[in-house]
Write a protein that binds this DNA or RNA. Structure first.
Lengths: 219, 219
DNA sequence: TAATTTTTTTAGGCTAACCTAAAAAAATTA
DNA sequence: TAATTTTTTTAGGTTAGCCTAAAAAAATTA
């Protein structure tokens, strides 16, 4: 078993999240931005991760995760999401309060702890933001969700996930009544700026393109 | 609020645990041994902690915690012990499996998390080893327990705590039936090597001086 | 009290993860 | 294709926490 530092784990997770479905390489700059650090620091770390066989790295050509690296990333995501469920279901945190704390908890290293937590929580399938929880074998089933921004006029669906996890965004959703499980219908699309008029609880609500891109719907 | 690193917190905790009731200074070497590091490294850290006003440090004269340092230490201990209760009560860990994991969890920094955990656990008074849990104001009530080694012949009491938390020791106790809540009676004291013969469940059992020193009794 | 031993500190180095500034490569635009 | 811009890497430096070896102080023993 390879041991990974707190920091290395954050890089692996960032690369995973930045990887478009399979294959395509992630750029140094993209990682730097995601981790709020500098490109030079990223290059340093990429060399280290490549030495550990966690990523495939060719100078100037970005990176992909190796199988080992991907498993490591998925494992961290598993921990993150299970802790989020714990915080919301057991400790009564709100869905907009758990992300940062889970960023810390996800680095606690104990298979027994996380597997026991999963049992204790009753094998949840998704976290409080609708993201699927990988099983202990690292199998992650991405549900087929579409962002509101890709829906058609008159199409109906259930809010089932969010792409952005910041307190600011989730707080806004909460206040607007845009929470998981609600049914929404696209009433109109404004081509000019990409905003969308949706029907929610028989009321009409306009959301910006940015918001529409970050709400995921099961149609 | 002063921020403390993972490492600084471990030093504060070590100093706290090494401090004989109030006042008396802790030596550099004692800290080095407790933390499995070198005296030179300890000196480095002591300077840093003194700069942060967490300890009173005079060269060559050992250290004591300041009020702020003591509060910080107690807070870490509060987290450690609450996590131990969580692991045993909710996740079905054994009392000999929780110490190392709690050493990691205790550094997660969130007052809201730990206070919510305390509520969730029902405000436990002691951890799985019988150690008292400080309240959120940092008040720690040490119960008046005596080690078996200090008991008199024919004296009876209830096993209410342990001084040593290693898996090795706790495992031994478990196997011998020496668990929290059991009544024991001192049958005989062997002056030669300090071992003690105790009555447990109507059976006689001989324990070494080392073991006797580490089992705490409410008499 | 002098000599010796033990404890503690200082001096100087190491590594992980970060940084800035400069150089090199790749991508874009003219 | 040449010139320019952007991206990425290299070079060299910083800090936290650790180390070893040597020096200094304190404690112990003779």
């Amino acid at each position: 078993m390879i041991t990974t530092s707190f920091t290395e784990e954050n890089y692996l997770k960032a690369i995973f999240h930045l990887s478009p479905q399979e294959a395509e390489a992630v750029s140094t700059n993209a990682i730097a931005e995601a981790l709020q650090t500098k490109a030079a620091s990223v290059t340093d770390m990429l060399k280290k991760l490549a030495d550990k066989n966690l990523i495939n790295y060719v100078k100037y050509q970005g990176v992909t995760l190796t199988d080992i690296g991907q498993q490591a990333a998925i494992n961290i995501i598993r921990k993150h999401r299970l802790w989020e469920v714990f915080l919301v279901d057991k400790l009564n945190f709100k869905w907009d309060e758990v992300h940062e704390l889970a960023e810390d908890l996800e680095h606690i290293n104990s298979t027994k702890l996380i597997d026991s937590l999963e049992v204790f929580l009753g094998f949840p399938k998704v976290d409080p933001h609708g993201d699927p929880i990988p099983d202990k074998n690292g199998v992650l089933k991405e549900p087929a969700l579409v962002p509101v921004s890709k829906m058609n006029i008159n199409q109906t669906g259930i809010i089932s996930g969010v792409k952005e996890h910041s307190t600011l965004f989730l707080n806004y959703l909460e206040k607007a009544g845009l929470v998981l499980g609600k049914q929404v219908k696209v009433q109109d699309l404004i081509e000019f700026d990409g905003s969308v008029i949706i029907a929610l609880d028989k009321q009409l609500l306009t959301i910006s393109r940015d918001v529409a891109k970050n709400i995921l719907i099961a149609v």
